[in-house]
């Protein structure tokens, strides 16, 4: 591509800037390199392809804002998040205070918690959504995450709308211990309520998705969809490795393995997911 050649001097000048992963040096603003294949990608193009690498189909990690951008019809999304005061009921401290980890997460992301809820249109179909933010404390599920997920379901039930949830999470939030653990009960009970109202729940598993989140809301979808190559499981790989003390299979805990074992309905490329939602929403309406 000739236009790349024209821009190369520019790229080199700005190459010191890093965004995202340590190793993937990317020029400021317009360019970034693929985390998997290293190709230098033009960001406006990357956006158009739903943050999927045009060379190797790597699905970039995206934040809530980008997820909304690639999922919903333009300008149709409405935020349903209510403001929540930060609560540290356990007064939790490990090497850092929970309070400090929480404010760091807020600064690092443009989110106020590890989940955002809202509603909007996908190819004209009105849906409610819950979107996890992995960069916010590992997408971990504390009290507010459970509460918001349940609020999304209440909204869906009141307005007779389907729910789509994008889950990416390390699991429970250690700093809220039992409060976090019981969010699994809260979200499972909420899903049950949605199902009893006969409203569809499409659960999308996004890399990585583990622990208390897969072991509750994420595995309870009427349809369970995964993004290609997403890591999905209950226990973390390291814990399993330490327990079984043997080499784990290469495809262990991948979306593809989950499909083979019968735990996901389909692996859908991010670029095709709007079309998939449209079709399924027509059928499940």
């Amino acid at each position: 591509m000739n236009w790349i050649k024209d821009l190369i001097p520019n790229i080199k000048r700005n190459f010191s800037q890093t965004l995202g992963d340590k190793d993937s040096k990317v020029p400021e603003g317009l360019w970034r390199s693929c985390d998997r294949c290293g190709s230098i990608l033009y960001i406006p193009e990357l956006k158009k392809s739903s943050y999927v690498c045009s060379k190797c189909s790597h699905h970039f990690k995206i934040n809530v804002e980008q997820r909304i951008e690639v999922t919903f019809d333009k300008d149709s999304y409405v935020d349903l998040n209510q403001h929540e005061e930060f609560k540290d009921l356990l007064d939790f401290k490990d090497t850092k205070r929970y309070k400090d980890r929480f404010s760091e997460a807020k600064k690092k992301t443009s989110s106020d918690e590890a989940i955002s809820i809202g509603h909007g249109k996908i190819k004209g179909k009105h849906v409610v959504s819950a979107i996890f933010e992995f960069d916010f404390l590992g997408g971990s599920m504390g009290g507010v995450v459970g509460k918001r997920f349940a609020q999304a379901i209440d909204y869906a039930v009141e307005n007779k709308l389907p729910l789509i949830c994008f889950s990416t999470s390390g699991g429970a939030r250690m700093q809220e211990s039992m409060i976090s653990l019981f969010q699994m009960g809260k979200t499972a009970a909420a899903v049950k309520k949605l199902k009893k109202s006969k409203l569809p729940f499409i659960s999308v598993l996004v890399d990585p998705c583990y622990g208390g989140v897969t072991a509750s809301l994420a595995m309870l979808g009427d349809l369970i969809i995964a993004e290609p190559k997403a890591r999905i499981g209950f226990s973390g790989k390291r814990v399993i490795q330490d327990t079984v003390k043997e080499e784990l299979p290469k495809d262990f805990q991948t979306a593809e393995k989950q499909l083979e074992m019968g735990f996901v309905d389909k692996i859908v490329d991010r670029k095709d997911i709007r079309k998939f939602f449209e079709k399924m929403l027509i059928i499940l309406e």
């Binding site: 994420a218 595995m219 499981g233 209950f234 226990s235 814990v239 399993i240 262990f252």
Partner: peptide, 16 residues
Amino acid sequence: PGVKAEHSGQHEAIAK
């Protein structure tokens, strides 16, 4: 936390 447990759906079983 084992391979068989994961392959037979620890996540789905607890969720369900």
